[in-house]
Design a protein around this nucleic acid. Structure first.
Lengths: 146, 146
DNA sequence: TTTACTGCAAAACATTTGCAATGAG
DNA sequence: CTCATTGCAAATGTTTTGCAGTAAA
């Protein structure tokens, strides 16, 4: 089990002739420890607390790298800009409440076979599914009077 | 049936104390006649052929208006910026081929009840579902050797 | 030592906004 | 006439890039 994301990253990085820097380690660490869906700016703010010199460009460059290695995923939540989280062990999708902006994660059982069935007949390969919902959570729904 | 989108739009616009301008008519007309998924820039290019003075800001403002009226939909296709199409009679979703960039539309039968089932137990209201796929179409898949 | 990586500032984009002029009703 | 709408240009907000200096390996 013990899939240490940092070690995994260090190895991947070195195998590709890249370098493990303190900035990269820091960014991955923040992402791993956070349960939230951070955007680049929020990540930068947190990173600056531990390394005041770190630049926003480094955040973006590292995020792109982590995405390529499949260690983080970027989500389009609602209409906004990109949010990131480390690749979850159990894939899930996101529901954004338009009232309180809370993000609720949920699993879609058998999503892969569902997608397979959909495209049966068409001979495409699906490498990625973007699935997210917007609406109102139970408490905001109450406030709207439903 | 004959749901003339332009007439429908004219009426909606006037009912709300807004005005029907030649720019708005032109933009909706281009969108209706196009089977593609245009972005604001592409729409602007086409509009300029018929009205060289039309500004990009007008495209954005009109697109926002049409979205509010539910006459056009905006899609996040892959990682890129917004693409638009007039609201289809039969709802569908999009598959973007990473090889040739072609967009393939397909229906998901019973999508609403599928979403209902997913959230059963959680008491949320889903007002919008973002669902799109990326991958390789049958011909690009061939080129990759699969 | 080598050269990948960083910080910074500037550039690149997509989209929005302020404002005086225009035109639909 | 009124004031919603437009075109333009400037402003915004996010992400990318060029480059000289820094630091992993």
């Amino acid at each position: 089990m013990n899939t240490d994301t940092s070690t995994q990253f260090s190895n991947s990085v070195r195998e590709n002739g890249l370098r493990m820097t303190k900035q990269r380690a820091l960014i991955l660490d923040i992402l791993r420890k956070s349960q939230e869906h951070l955007d680049a700016e929020a990540l930068h703010d947190r990173a600056k607390k531990l390394d005041p010199q770190i630049g926003l460009a480094t955040i973006y460059r590292t995020l792109a790298l982590l995405k390529n290695f499949g260690l983080v995923n970027e989500y389009d939540l609602g209409e906004e800009h990109g949010h990131f989280e480390t690749t979850p062990l159990t894939p899930h999708h996101h529901f954004t409440c338009l009232g309180c902006k809370k993000i609720i994660e949920f699993e879609i059982p058998c999503i892969d076979s569902f997608i397979q069935d959909l495209l049966l007949g068409d001979e495409m390969i699906v490498t990625r599914a973007h699935i997210s919902f917007e609406g109102y959570c139970s408490s905001c729904r109450g406030k709207l009077g439903a």
